[in-house]
Amino acid sequence: MVAASTLKTFSVTLRVWRQAGPAAAGGFVDYPAKDISPDMSFLEMLDVVNDELTAKGIEPIAFAHDCREGICGTCSCTINGKPHGPGKGVATCQTYMRSFSDGDTIVVEPFRARAFPVVKDLVTDRAAFDKIQQSGGFITARAGSAPDANALPIPKGDADLAMDAAQCIGCGACVAACKNASAMLFVSAKVGHLGLLPQGQAERDRRVLAMVNTMDTLGFGSCTNQYECSAACPKLISHDFIARMNRDYLTASLRSAFKPAPANTGGGAA
C-alpha cells in the first residue's frame, strides 16, 4: 500500500534559535524547509535543512539527538512553545512532520532554564541532572555482594509503580515546560523508583535529602503544582511522584531531627 500521505510534500518556515556559543547572544533566524514529506520525523526534516545549509556554506543548526526512538533522552527542542512539540507522550525524535501543515511557521528553541545553559543553537548542557543523580540517585550495591534475586519478593504493584517512575529518560522536558524551571518531576521519579523498592529503604532518607539539596543548589526552581511537567513528559510520568517525594522529604526531615545520631559511623564508605 502506498499511503496517500507519502505522496504529498509541503513546505514550512522554520524560525530557529541560533546561538554560536554559551556566551554569545542568540536570536531567531528563519529558514525555509521545502518539499517536506509528512512521513519525515522532525529531526529528519532538520537533517535535510542542515544539508541544504551546508551546501550554501552556512553552518548547520546544532541540535541534540541520538537514538531517534524516544528512549535515550538526548533530543530536546521546544517546538511552538511546547517541549518536544505538539504530540503527547513523545520525544522530539518521535514528532513527525504530519503534525504540521503547509505554510506553517514552526518556532524551534532549545529547552530553556538557567540550570540548562545553551551550548550552541538548540543544544543545552543538562549535566545538572547527572549531578543530582550523583548526589544520591542510587542504591549502594557493590558488584558481587548481592543476595539471590528472588530472596526478596516485591509486590507486583510496587514493582510496576517503580517501573512507571524508572521510565524517565532524563531529557529535561519537565524543567523546560515548568514556568519555574523546576526539576521536581525528574528528581521525584528517581526518588520514587528507588523508594518504592525494599532494596532502596536503607538509603531512603539520605537519598531524598541529598537529591533535593543538590537540586536546589543547582538553581532549579520550585514546584507550584501546575503539572505542566507531567503533561510535557515524553513518558507521561505522573506528578504523583512529586507528592510522594514531598512526603518523603518531610518524613526524612522529621526522622533526621528526632533520631539520635550514632556515636561512631565507621564503615560504609562512600
Binding site: A146, A149, P155, G200
Partner: peptide
C-alpha cells in the same frame, strides 16, 4: 540478575 535486582532494577514480577 542478582546484582541488577540489588541495584533496584524494576524487573517484571
Amino acid at each position: 540478575i542478582d546484582q541488577c535486582v540489588a541495584q533496584g532494577v524494576p524487573f517484571a514480577r
